[in-house]
């Protein structure tokens, strides 16, 4: 143990000059001058862009709905089968669908902001 300590001290002395700390010589000032103000998080930009895009898309929904309702599809004569009906998305009102989609987009956005924030 004592021999180890003696050896360590000897090696430390031996490396004293080799590993000697450098003089500052303006280095710290150069580092401090080069510091950028902390960058705004990229995730917030993504979030803001998603919100703006989502808002613009939401404004277009009435137009889209008008276009869709103007489409006249040919009616097919398919004999009606006597099977039990299941409640599906197609039976929901368009307002429910649109609001559901918006909620889903907001949820995805919040998840991505949360995850990106952790990874940055």
């Amino acid at each position: 143990m004592m021999q180890d300590n003696f050896d360590d001290k000897m090696f430390k002395d031996l490396l004293n000059e080799y590993a000697a700390p450098m003089d500052d010589a303006g280095f710290s000032d150069a580092v401090m001058a080069g510091l950028m103000p902390p960058k705004p998080r990229k995730a917030y930009f993504v979030g803001i862009a998603a919100a703006l895009g989502g808002g613009y898309a939401a404004l277009q929904v009435p137009n889209l709905w008008r276009y869709i309702s103007a489409i006249n599809l040919p009616t097919l004569n398919i004999p009606k089968l006597d099977i039990p009906q299941i409640e599906t998305a197609s039976s929901m009102s368009p307002y429910t669908l649109v609001s559901g989609t918006l909620f889903m987009l907001i949820f995805i956005w919040l998840c991505s902001v949360f995850l990106l924030e952790d990874s940055m």
Binding site: M22, D23, D24, S28, V31
Partner: peptide, 10 residues
């Protein structure tokens, strides 16, 4: 920075 720059640079 001022405390540790010497050792980090060396």
């Amino acid at each position: 920075v001022r405390d540790h720059q010497g050792q980090i640079r060396a």
